[in-house]
């Protein structure tokens, strides 16, 4: 199909080393895994990731050495597997700078970018060591004098959003939880949509303006069936616990982890994703 549809490798090749990338979804759900795997395959370096709550996606990028900064509220494997093994190791060994956020400050930073202002104040938060640790400043309400923490603009170079359906112009439909994806798409300089299904525009029009992300924001559309795997895609497939369990197990040992990456991420055959372990 024409329009903005291009191959995954070509879309990911447009992302420069050092870029700030925002990733769709939340923990194990609707991560843009196909694109994340391709970032690793292409050996990207120095990326900075933006996400409220990450899991496999951020951990893998940390383990593969693709990111050296993470602007995140949470990175962990929830109660399934606990701490994110490669993320924590990278941070503890000084290979990854964690720009810790409260999830709401990620949202606020994205909103500042969306609104074209350098910062936005946020309610509450006083007493948290995040304020000095992140060197966040305060501002005073010129009307009442109230002091508020000012969250700087968070403007990703790219937002990578995995969606259920998109048309060739990038009008993209997300079913169920949208999380921060629309904020990311609006805040980012460029947007890549990876879609389970690429459909004619009529399909979204006929059902009554069903797109979540308007195509005018989108630069590249990639057809990526099962593109969130091993994360879930609402209504289509669940979290692949067995794969994630094997990933966490392999992460305990450097050699085993490299072997795992080779087998499931670096091999082009792994592109299809979802071959059950």
């Amino acid at each position: 199909m024409s329009g903005k549809v291009i191959a995954l490798a070509d879309a990911v090749a447009r992302i420069d080393d050092g870029a700030t990338i925002a990733l769709s979804g939340n923990t194990f759900h609707r991560s843009p895994t196909a694109a994340v795997h391709e970032l690793v395959r292409q050996g990207k370096r120095g990326l900075r990731v933006v996400k409220t709550a990450g899991a496999y996606d951020v951990d893998l990028l940390a383990g593969a050495g693709s990111i050296d900064r993470a602007a995140v509220g949470y990175v962990g494997f929830e109660a399934l597997f606990g701490l994110a093994p490669n993320y924590r190791r990278a941070a503890e060994e000084g290979r990854l700078v964690v720009e810790e956020h409260a999830c709401y400050t990620v949202i606020t930073g994205l909103r500042a970018a969306i609104q074209g202002v350098p910062f936005l104040p946020v309610a509450g938060m006083f007493g948290s060591d995040l304020i000095p640790a992140r060197e966040w400043k305060t501002v005073f309400d010129p009307y009442s004098g109230e002091e508020l923490v000012a969250i700087p603009r968070l403007a990703p170079d790219w937002a990578i959003i995995h969606v259920h359906r998109a048309d060739p112009e990038g009008n993209a439909q997300i079913r169920g939880s949208v999380f921060e994806d629309l904020l990311m798409a609006n805040a980012a300089e460029r947007v890549m949509v990876t879609a389970e299904e690429v459909v004619p525009p009529e399909a979204l029009r006929a059902e009554g303006a069903q797109a979540t992300v308007p195509g005018f924001l989108v630069d590249a559309v990639v057809h990526a069936p099962r593109g969130a795997w091993p994360c879930s895609c609402e209504g289509l497939y669940p979290v692949d616990d067995a794969y994630l369990s094997a990933y966490v197990e392999a992460s305990k040992d450097e050699a085993a982890y490299r072997e795992f990456l080779q087998a499931y991420v670096l091999q082009p055959a792994a592109l299809a994703g979802g071959e059950p372990l």
Binding site: Y74, C103, M125
Partner: peptide, 14 residues
């Protein structure tokens, strides 16, 4: 030890 991060807690708790 790098823990997961406070997620929404800095804002929500306050």
């Amino acid at each position: 030890v790098r823990l997961p991060g406070g997620a929404g807690s800095a804002l929500l708790a306050s």
